[in-house]
Design a protein around this nucleic acid. Sequence first.
DNA 1: TCTGGGGTCCTAGGACCC
DNA 2: TCTGGGGTCCTAGGACCC
Length: 414
Amino acid sequence: MLIDINNCYVSFERVFNPRLNGLPVVVASNNDGCVVARSNEAKALGIRMGVPIFQIQEIIRKHKVQVYSSNYELYADMSARVMQVISSIVPEVEQYSIDEAFVDLKTYPDEMVPPLARRLKETLAQWIGVPVSIGVASTKTLAKVANRLAKKGPGIKILSDLEALAILEKYPVEDLWGIGHRITGRLNTMGITYAGQLLRMPPAWIRKDFNVNILRLVTELKGSPCISLELEAAKRKGIGSAKSFGKPLSVLSQIQEAASNYVAACASKLRTQKERATILNVFIQTNYFSASSPQYSNSIQVCLPVASNLDAVLIREVNAALRKIFRPGYAYKRVGVLLTGFVPESQVNLNLFCTPETAAATSAQTVMDKLNERMGRGTVRSAAQGFKKEWKMIQRKVSPRYTTQLSELIRVKV
DNA sequence: TCTGGGGTCCTAGGACCC
DNA sequence: TCTGGGGTCCTAGGACCC
């Protein structure tokens, strides 16, 4: 079973702002750049996923489209609530993304499945206030197909393998889970436009001319599971952060301030998975959309002398790396950091030529983490993370963090 | 004027080993 | 005229996902 929140971010906004119901609503990406979520009314106006906001200003004005900045603190918390409700009803749940969960129904008899699906849908509507679509089939890939059918119809679709065969005859290949625009292009030039056609191609040919993922996909479409349920969240193999600035920056120290904040956020995530990084990548770039201004981008990889997950250590390394790749005279648009080469916290190789991390440094970090957990993110932080925040992103219309900040609780007039 | 962010996996090719 | 066979590991680039 695949449970998917309809128009996820828009639905979360509507929970706290019901007057948005029935209106065209879109949620924008960072810096209010592109459309990342659309209500059905917005979709009906022809607003495409990912389109830059400035290109649809006309439509927005004419149809009074409600544009919201993305509020990930709110969305992450709402998503966690949805997942919690699902887990309270069914035991085997894989959270696949912020708005999707796969559920294992192996232990449920067939006749139990429709009432279970209805119960999940109704409970999420009543307890959280969000609409979901539910698709059920014999493999993950077919559940994705079923979910898509559910979205167009009554909200729940239980798809048998037999019915799937018929449906796939007129199911465009680009709508399949795992087929993107590049593979679609290649398939289309071969005359393959529907999933049913792909299904009839010889497996050996698919393996040879494409790759093992496409072969798995086709096998799943035939009803044989190849992709299993991942009940335990895997540890990240890389943790990165890269964001566009609200405005172009030319001063090294301002870029360093941004990068210090990004790497501190990465380090915090790394600590929660109890690992340390041995490799740090840093990159900067100018605005590649701006054809008229001089372009420059560069990146650097640093192998840390001793693996670390401490803000202070990583901020120092990031700033040193930036000094090496920064060139004056450019208007920079983006900086990014990436931590990789993780080792368990308890298995750090020391280095003959370096002083190992002191116990004091580690416990200082622990105290900071505890304070921040209790008092809110960023309560205690490195001075390098700055105060001016010249780099901060544009959020013209961001809704309150209703569920995670006491000062932003919803007000109700009785 | 204005164009997102954070991930995973696979493959080909290069470099190396005995 | 003729120049082996069987591997591993790493990386960049490509493709995909939400």
